[in-house]
Every structure is written in structure tokens, then in C-alpha cells.
Design a protein around this nucleic acid. Structure first.
Lengths: 229, 229
DNA sequence: ATGACTTAAATCGTATACAATTCTGTATTC
DNA sequence: GAATACAGAATTGTATACGATTTAAGTCAT
């Protein structure tokens, strides 16, 4: 018999779905439907939706509903700008405070990335990259920096799948990740910060914000398309 | 007759109370008590508590309850470190994007700060300073940077009242605020960033993290104090 | 045909009742 | 006397019912 699902689990599942674009940007999330789907009441669903709202993974419109986050080119630009700044700082701190376990984890994700790219499993490679950057953030041991970067990395991942970049298979990213990890291992904070910062700046250049795929339009966009006639 | 209070209002009141240390760090917030006090059910209270949790103004322990945020010296140090970084960036962007209205607001808060210090109303002066920095953040026009700085500024304010600094009446802060505003008005991003960054760094030095007042210790702190004998 | 008004459906917002969990004080046992 | 087990109280977690708001459709008069 199926065990009753908890709030934490619901959060995890929903977040994962948004992360992997199984719920494409703009999709409406109806409380009653989700409640039925998970076999719970609306109460825990509402709690989860609020949480997702705070992480900007959904947009919550009063008396209207919840909609999956739909990044605009402007926001994407701002997200990567901030990441450039914060990830540099995280790398600097990581060089000081990273534990052996964290270094090992980053190494593992680096290998995963290499392997998945070799197998042309670009989507899985993207996930490994996100995990690499997340561990790097955690290695800073600054809980606020970690939570901010966690949000920015999540949104970046959505942007990557939204403005689909999986085809162009960035060859430089692996080397850059390796160099960053190397600098951290050598406890060279200055270099690590420099590399990490410019790495994100590179990535930003790879995304073509004009070409969005899997486009489920937002309410506002739909309205503005039809209102002018 | 008293109008029924809304979720937004509850949030505002509670946040203000924590902000002004009317609810001192560590205090437990019981849902039923709050519900009675505000004359609503527990449902909107729970929503507000989640929101406060997300902003780190309270700590939410499952099946236990909500407790007002209690900053440790370590966290305080990390908060100011991040602010040093983010507020520099915000100043740089503000120099590019600040609207005339925002410049005017900052000017107003600067005058308020001066006036309140002259009247020895140190607590109100602190509030004016927070408002100044908040407007500076908003002038960056990067929504993520704004939300991060809003959190850090709130927590800084709590830290200021917790590690009470109102007596030493920082004389340099007003001049520095003025210089920052001047640089932004002259659209000199580089200088504004430099000034803002070092300003926060200065502030950090003013706080004596060893002398906490109104101290309700956390369980962990109590244990570690007695366990080593 | 077009515009304003009415009505109905869908959805979120709130209140209340009940279940599950955690803590506390007390009794019982060794 | 100390440790354990248990019962009660307090608190949070969840489910359900009802109310408020918004959206959209449909009707009618112009």
C-alpha cells in the first residue's frame, strides 16, 4: 500500500519537475489538481506553493493561481550578473573552508559531467554541472551565500533548458570547472575567485536569449498579444 | 468597529515587532496565541510564519514551533561580509539606473538620519539608515539583488539592536552616506561601489560581537557552556 | 453587430475540527 | 535515589467546509 506523502516530499517532486522543465514555464498549477494527484488535501499543497514562490520557481497571483516561473531575457541577464559576483566570492571562501568531502564531491560531479558529455547525455551533464556549482557554493560555509546561490543556480538551470543550449555542448566548461577545482584544492582563493567569476561570465555569453523553446506563454504575454487588435 | 485584518498587515506588524526587538531573539511564537491576538484563524498566521522563515527572521522547527531569529557572532560576521560585496554592486548599478525619485528619497533619509542623531534619537536614526540602504538597493533595479539585500539589511538591523550599538553614535556614517549618494548622483559607478563597500566594512568593525544584550541563549550555546567542565 | 449587465464557473482565501507529534510531569520499578 | 514508562497537556500538521474574488460566458437592450 502506498505510504502517505509528506510536505517535504511534495516540495522535492514539484521542484524537480520544474527543474527538468517537465512543467514548462508558464504552466498553471491548480491547488485542487495537485492535491488530488498527490493524494493529500490542499493545505500542504498551499504551503509548498508558498515555498516555491519564495524561491521564485513559481509566480503566485492572488485569487488567480500559481504559474511556473518564466524567465525574461532581462531577468536572465540579471541572474547571471549576480552569479558572476556571488560565485566568485563563493570560490574564494571555498578555497579557505572546503572540506575534503566537498572536494571529493566536486571531483565526482566533474567526472560525471565529462562522462555524460561523452555519451551525448547533455541533459544529465547539465544536472551534474548544477551539482558541481551547488557543492562549490556549500563549500563557502556561508549559509546566506549558499541559499542565494542555490536560488540563482536553480533559475540558471531553468534558463538553460528554456533557452535550449544542450545542442551546442559547451566544450570549454569542463576545463574551466577543472581549473576552478584545482585552484580551490591549492587553497588559492584569489585565483579561484577570478576563474569562477569569469567562468560564469563566459556561460552568460553562451545563452542566446532571443531563442526560447518549449514556450508556454504567460498570462501577461497572452493578454498583450490579443489586447492590441 | 475594528476592520478585519489581512495577511499582509499581519506580516507587516510581526516583522516590525521583530525588527524593533519588541519580540526579543529566541522568543517562541505560538500560532494559536497569534491567531487570537490578531483575531483571525491559524491559517493566515501559518502563511505569515512561513514567509518570515524564508526571510530568516524566524526559525521554524517542525512539530515544535517558531522562534525569533537569534544571530550568532559567526552569522553576524557572514551577514556583513556578504553585504560588503552586494552593497558595492548595488551602488554601482544604482549609479547607472537610479531614478530621480530614488535619489530624492535617499536624500530625505539622509536628512532624517542627521536630524535624529542631533536629537539623540538613535533608534529612529538607525531606522533611517536602514531605509537609506534599502532605497539604494532598490535603485539597482535588479530584483534578486534587492531581495537579498533586503534580507541582509533587516538582519543587520536586528544585529545592531541585539549587540546594542546605539550609544556609541557613529559619527562617520552620515558623511559616508553623503559621499555615496554624491557619487551615485554623479553617475560614478566605480567610486560609488568603492565607497559603499568600504562603508559596510567600516560598520562591521563597529559592532562588538562579544557583547550581546537582552541575551536569550540558544540550547546549543547553553550546553556548550556547561559541558566542558 | 456591439456594448453593458447579469449570471455561472473556477479558483483562491479563511475558519474550524480533528489527528499526529512532542514535551512535561508523575508514578512505578529496580 | 535514579532510571524508565506512562499519561496528560500543549503545539503543530492535515482535512474539510464554507466564503470571497476573479474570470468568462451569455443575455438583452440599443
Amino acid at each position: 500500500m502506498s505510504q502517505r506523502i509528506g510536505e517535504e516530499e511534495i516540495y522535492r517532486v514539484l521542484k524537480e519537475a520544474i527543474f527538468n522543465a517537465e512543467l514548462s514555464p508558464g504552466t498553471q498549477l491548480v491547488e485542487t489538481s495537485l492535491a488530488e494527484a498527490f493524494g493529500v488535501s490542499r493545505t500542504p499543497i498551499r504551503a509548498v506553493l508558498q515555498r516555491l514562490k519564495y524561491e521564485s520557481l513559481i509566480k503566485l497571483v492572488p485569487n488567480r493561481g500559481a504559474f511556473v516561473y518564466c524567465p525574461s531575457p532581462d531577468e536572465a541577464e540579471q541572474i547571471f550578473s549576480l552569479r558572476t559576483l556571488l560565485e566568485g566570492e563563493a570560490a574564494r571562501l571555498a578555497a579557505e573552508h572546503a572540506t575534503p568531502q566537498q572536494l571529493e564531491e566536486m571531483e565526482t560531479f566533474l567526472h560525471q559531467e565529462r562522462e555524460y558529455y561523452r555519451q551525448k547525455e547533455n541533459h544529465k551533464a547539465l544536472k551534474a554541472i548544477a551539482d558541481f556549482h551547488l557543492t562549490l557554493a556549500e563549500a563557502s560555509h556561508n549559509p546566506f551565500l549558499i541559499s542565494y546561490l542555490r536560488q540563482l543556480i536553480s533559475l540558471s538551470h531553468i534558463i538553460f533548458t528554456f533557452y535550449d543550449t544542450t545542442d551546442q555542448g559547451e566544450p570549454h566548461s569542463m576545463d574551466e570547472h577543472g581549473a576552478i577545482l584545482e585552484a580551490i584544492k591549492n587553497r588559492d582563493g584569489r585565483l579561484a575567485a577570478e576563474l569562477a567569476s569569469s567562468h560564469i561570465h563566459e556561460i552568460k555569453g553562451d545563452v542566446d536569449f532571443s531563442k526560447a523553446v518549449k514556450h508556454s506563454l504567460s498570462i501577461e504575454q497572452l493578454v498583450s498579444r490579443y489586447v492590441k487588435r
